[in-house]
Amino acid sequence: MNGINCDGEGGWTRVGYFNMTQSGATCPTGLTQKNFTNIDHPLCGTVANNNNCASTTFSSNGLTYNEVCGQVRGYQFFRILAFHRYAGDKNSSIIENFTVDGVSITHGSNPRKHIWAYVGGFREDRTDTRACPCNTGYSGGLDLNATFIGSHYYCESGADPVQSVTGDLYATDPLWDGQQCDDRESTCCPANSKMPWFYRSLDTQTTDDIELRLCSSETEATRHTPVDIFELYIK
């Protein structure tokens, strides 16, 4: 399929897709449909009162690949905390215990291998441990380059600067689309970014299936990042 949003070249095979804005669309097995009053289509999220990850897997169909490309679009619900728990819990630095508010894309098992993360920050103007590490003036103390994540992530918030963050879905500012990146968050959406698309070249070739995990650092009732668009290609 056309790889214009990946590397500008062909040869890509789509192995994963859902778009909840389309009539009749359903969430893949492992994710739960969520309905909100301030958005006109359902979203896919985690089970209520679960502070772990909801998971779904997309088969490589036995194809050998070493390049992965895709996109995710999600939304902020209530007080999402980016890497706050990850920074404070030594066990969460292990990919199997990835306590982050957002989406984790991995391949393989025992252990999983990181491909990309889409993470939600508390508010666009924050600089503390609840902020996106890419925010200007970030002081949360987390050096992602020293972790398995490295630079292979996107982070955005749906809450405007100084806005009171309440128990709502922030539907007017979707996450990870590279738009409405205001205040200190502007550095998270550089002009040369492909957001919402990511591209990753792996170190070795593999036939691993690819796992999509929607993770929350606390119970789903207080914070999560439901998604409505997901697309995944390999080459």
Rank of each mutant, 00 (worst) to 15 (best):
D177H: 10
C27F: 06
E96A: 15
L63A: 15
C27Q: 10
G150E: 03
A131S: 15
D208E: 15
S60N: 11
L232I: 08
H107D: 06
L212N: 03
P174E: 00
N145A: 01
T106P: 01
S186C: 01
R223P: 00
T222D: 10
C69A: 09
G30V: 04
C6N: 12
S92W: 10
Q76H: 03
T207D: 14
R123Y: 07
Y75N: 02
C134I: 02
I105W: 06
T129V: 11
P190D: 10
I105K: 07
L144K: 07
L43N: 11
V103A: 06
T129N: 14
S151Q: 12
T26L: 10
V165N: 11
G140A: 13
W12R: 05
R130K: 12
W176S: 07
Y170I: 01
R79W: 05
P174M: 01
V72Q: 03
Q71C: 03
K194E: 01
A131R: 05
Q180I: 12
H114W: 06
N19Y: 14
D173K: 13
G88T: 09
T166C: 00
A131I: 10
Y138T: 09
R85F: 07
P111H: 08
D182V: 14
Y170K: 08
C189L: 08
N52D: 09
T64D: 10
A54R: 11
C44I: 02
D209S: 15
R123L: 04
M1C: 04
G62D: 09
Y154F: 15
S55K: 15
C44V: 03
G24W: 04
A191R: 09
D89Y: 11
A171E: 14
L63S: 14
T204M: 06
G88C: 02
I234K: 06
Q22H: 07
Q22L: 15
H84M: 03
R123F: 09
T204F: 13
D40T: 12
G102R: 09
G3L: 09
R79Y: 01
Y170S: 02
M20L: 11
C53D: 02
D208T: 06
Y170R: 12
G45E: 05
L43Q: 10
Y199G: 05
I229D: 04
M195C: 02
D208S: 15
I39H: 07
S92T: 08
T207C: 08
P174Y: 01
E96N: 13
T222R: 14
P111R: 12
S157F: 06
V165I: 15
F148P: 03
R79A: 10
S216I: 00
P196E: 00
G120L: 03
A82M: 00
Q179F: 09
A146E: 10
V100Q: 06
A87F: 01
T172Y: 06
